[in-house]
């Protein structure tokens, strides 16, 4: 084992090893998704200095701090506005927004729909762990109906967001959903989304072992296995069927992949026309 320590993990050049171990709890899916994201960056073959990672606040918001790329850890909910600024200042960059469901859809919900409407050329990775994990497990906009949380001890009376439907309706040009257990599909989808020109949105279902799993009295491995057994892979599915209901089966796959002029292209066109 002492010999193995001197060997190098294949992603070692993309992680800030001086900050490892990261803060994510044992069994947290964020680490797996982060690893898939870095593998995808490697898979695209684009040089690393052409990438920027932006994240907001929350457990998954720590991601930007662990990537050996130019990265920003921004204020709560404002990952997309920062990323928009970066993209408009330097359209050459591949901007990745790596954040959680609370940051992107509750606190930063408005920014998300407008970036999708403008078709900003961003890759938005949303890790959906069904809860506000870092602040103690309060009910979130993505907590399933009847699920327990710190603020809904008798079950959640509300319905969760259907995130891919929201993204499609707002005008996103690439929308997909996977779970953290589908690592190969996830890596390929990330790489495809980074290569895609336009607003790409990928929702990744992931377990929160402390605040969601333990409070709902399920076992971590049971929930992760449910991601395999209670999901259906159906590309181009009707977005109205994409609600989060494990009893019915959660639909995974790539739902939208279209081309539309991006915000920086349209801006450049106007600027050039104005300049004559």
């Amino acid at each position: 084992m002492a010999k193995a320590k001197q060997r190098v993990h294949p992603l070692e050049d993309l992680i800030r090893t001086e900050r490892i171990p990261h803060i994510w709890c044992p069994g947290c899916g964020v680490g797996t998704v982060f690893s898939a994201c870095l593998s995808a960056i490697k898979q695209t073959g684009i040089e690393y200095r052409k990438f920027t990672m932006v994240s907001g606040i929350g457990c998954s918001g720590r991601g930007a701090g662990y990537a050996r790329l130019d990265s920003f850890h921004t204020t709560h909910g404002r990952a997309i506005p920062f990323a928009t600024g970066i993209k408009m200042a330097n359209p050459e960059l591949n901007v990745i927004v790596f954040s959680g469901d609370g940051d992107l859809f509750a606190i930063g919900g408005n920014h998300f729909i407008h970036a999708a409407r403008r078709n900003m050329d961003l890759t938005v990775i949303c890790i959906n762990n069904f809860i506000y994990g870092m602040t103690g497990g309060q009910v979130a906009a993505t907590t399933p109906h009847n699920a327990q949380s710190a603020t809904t001890p008798y079950g959640n009376p509300e319905s969760p967001f259907n995130l891919p439907l929201l993204a499609i309706a707002s005008g996103a040009t690439y929308v997909a959903r996977w779970t953290m257990i589908h690592t190969r599909d996830l890596t390929d989808t990330f790489a495809e989304a980074m290569a895609h020109r336009g607003f790409s949105f990928i929702e990744v279902l992931s377990p929160c072992p402390i605040n969601y799993v333990r409070r709902n009295k399920v076992k971590l491995m049971d929930l992760v296995k449910k991601f395999q057994t209670h999901t259906i892979i159906r590309n181009d599915a009707d977005p109205r069927d994409l609600d989060l209901d494990f009893e019915k089966g959660v639909v995974l796959g790539k739902f939208v992949d279209i081309d539309r002029p991006t915000a920086d292209m349209l801006y450049e066109e106007i600027r050039r026309r104005r300049a004559g």
Binding site: H9, H22, T32, F34, S35, I181, T183, T187
Partner: peptide, 29 residues
């Protein structure tokens, strides 16, 4: 850190990389 790490108990590995992709800690490849 006080955790029990995994150990290799058989020589059946076919180099599928699934453990490497699934590990949240960059601890196995």
């Amino acid at each position: 850190k006080g955790y029990h790490p995994p150990m290799v108990v058989s020589d059946g590995c076919l180099n599928c990389h699934y453990c490497e992709q699934l590990c949240p800690e960059f601890a196995i490849y």
